[in-house]
């Protein structure tokens, strides 16, 4: 399992599929928040399960974060986990963006709403392009104040040594609201997605 590697063509193909899915998710978010989302080129890497908690700790060391984690699984052995990560500062800002009074709706509900828009639009966009149907598990919300992120990552319900990790950043320009989407496609599912990518590459 450790000797899996993406070819340059596979990486390019995956990145383009991600771009299209990310574009649709950004469009939905922009319409929901009535603002503009700045798109960046996504980052793709293969990561060792051992290194993942450490990588998260590095990226989100400074502040508390809230994380919305949702599993997905489809045909042909495509599965994984989508993580949306909000720094506390941004999580607090959502109510203001949406024009809620502090007591109108809980922060958890707001995060769930936004996460649902981003995750389902993104994953449906991805599924459509690879001619697949995805099902989703119920989203779980983890606050780093209550549960260390490392613990959540270790508890994710798949056994894997290696995962394909995709980092996507959604930046709302006029409100300085950011959130990161991390897609983890673990173990055998990497080989399965490689087969799907090769099939698309053969068409062009």
């Amino acid at each position: 399992m450790k000797d899996i590697a993406l070819t340059e063509d596979q990486r390019d193909c995956l990145q383009e599929l991600i771009n299209v899915a990310m574009g649709r998710a950004s469009d939905k978010l922009a319409r929901y928040l009535q603002t503009f989302v700045h798109l960046q080129v996504p980052y793709i890497e293969l990561i060792d399960s051992q290194a993942l908690p450490e990588r998260f700790a590095e990226n989100y060391a400074e502040e508390g974060v809230s994380l919305v984690s949702q599993g997905f699984y489809g045909e042909r052995g495509i599965l994984g986990e989508s993580l949306l990560i909000y720094k506390s500062h941004d999580a607090h800002g959502i109510a203001e963006i949406l024009g809620y009074e502090p007591d109108d709706i809980s922060e958890v509900e707001q995060l769930t709403d936004i996460s649902s828009i981003l995750t389902t639009t993104f994953l449906n966009g991805l599924a459509e392009q690879i001619d697949n149907q995805l099902a989703y598990s119920a989203p779980r919300i983890v606050s780093s104040v209550d549960t260390p992120l490392e613990q959540h990552l270790e508890q994710l319900s798949f056994n894997w040594d290696l995962a394909l990790k995709v980092d996507i950043s959604y930046q709302v320009t006029d409100y300085s609201f950011n959130c990161d989407m991390v897609l983890l496609i673990p173990g055998e599912a990497i080989v399965n997605i490689q087969a799907v990518l090769d099939q698309i590459l053969d068409e062009f």
Partner: peptide, 9 residues
């Protein structure tokens, strides 16, 4: 030809 389909873009 773009994936950034936001109306503003």
């Amino acid at each position: 030809v773009s994936a950034d389909i936001q109306p503003e873009m």
